Simulated scan of single mutants.
Amino acid sequence: MSNKESNSDNNDLLPISPEALASFQNNREFIINETLHRSLKVDQDVEHHGEKAHEIIKKGLEFTTKMLEAAMSVGEIALLEDELKWAKDRLPHDGVEMGHVLSRFKIYRNVVMETMPAEHGVEVAKYIDEMIKQLQYEL
């Protein structure tokens, strides 16, 4: 996909500062749990999962967090693009629509900005914004 390749070439970000990465790591569990809590309140995004909603969303947030942390550590947007490609191929088998993922990314971003010190949150948000932008482009 040539657009994807050009996005990787043009949108690589610098790795985030060690302080921002440490702040993200220190707040990781809260960010995941708060995003999960807020996501579960969006009935149209989760009701079709039934009793598995909590488990499905939590696993997705944990995976996203690991990939985000890796990408931010090295400044590699391609890692996030690969995650989104995998998500588009795999998640529909679990009944997860990309629109739901987009909604959760936006919630995740809000939680990051509310939780972390502003200067660190802004660094992390740049990466989340890239994920949101890429997913919006694909929808």
Rank of each mutant, 00 (worst) to 15 (best):
Q44W: 11
N10Q: 14
Y108D: 02
Y108K: 02
L36M: 08
R38H: 03
M72H: 02
E5L: 15
H54E: 13
I77D: 04
L91G: 02
H54I: 07
K66C: 03
L91P: 03
F30Y: 15
A87I: 04
R28D: 05
N10G: 08
L80A: 07
I16H: 05
M98A: 07
S8L: 10
G50P: 07
N33E: 14
L36D: 04
F30L: 15
K85Y: 03
M67H: 03
E97N: 02
L68D: 00
S103R: 14
V74L: 05
N7W: 15
M98E: 08
V122T: 05
E83C: 06
E34H: 10
I77R: 10
P92F: 06
N3C: 05
L21H: 10
N26C: 06
L14W: 03
K66F: 03
H48I: 05
E34I: 10
D43S: 13
E29R: 13
G60D: 03
L102Y: 01
L61S: 01
K52S: 13
L102M: 07
L14P: 04
I77C: 03
K88A: 11
V112M: 06
W86C: 02
A70L: 04
M113P: 00
N33S: 13
P18T: 06
H54R: 14
E5Q: 15
I57F: 06
M67D: 07
P92Q: 08
F63Q: 11
K52N: 12
L21S: 10
N11D: 10
W86D: 08
H37P: 00
D43A: 14
N11H: 12
D45C: 15
G50W: 04
G121A: 02
N3L: 15
H49T: 03
M67F: 01
F105P: 01
A22N: 14
L36G: 08
I56V: 14
K52I: 10
F30A: 11
N10F: 13
N26P: 00
W86Q: 08
K52W: 07
N33G: 06
Q44F: 13
F105G: 01
S103K: 12
I32Q: 04
I56Q: 06
V112Y: 01
H49C: 06
M113L: 15
D94H: 12
G95L: 10
E62Y: 00
S17F: 05
V74E: 11
Y108N: 05
T65N: 06
L102T: 06
N3H: 14
D43L: 10
V42R: 12
H37N: 14
E5K: 15
G99M: 08
H49N: 09
R109W: 02
E81A: 10
N27M: 11
G60C: 07
Y108R: 01
P117N: 09
H37D: 12
K59C: 02
S73E: 04
D94F: 14
I16M: 09
G95T: 06
L91V: 05
L13N: 03
D89K: 14
L40G: 09
P92E: 09
K41E: 12
E76M: 09
K58T: 03
E119P: 01
K59T: 10
D94G: 00
I107Q: 01
E69C: 01
R109Y: 05
N3G: 11
T35D: 09
F30C: 03
A118F: 04
E47N: 11
V42A: 10
A70W: 00
R104T: 11
M67K: 12
V112I: 15
G75P: 05
H37G: 00
N110F: 01
E29L: 15
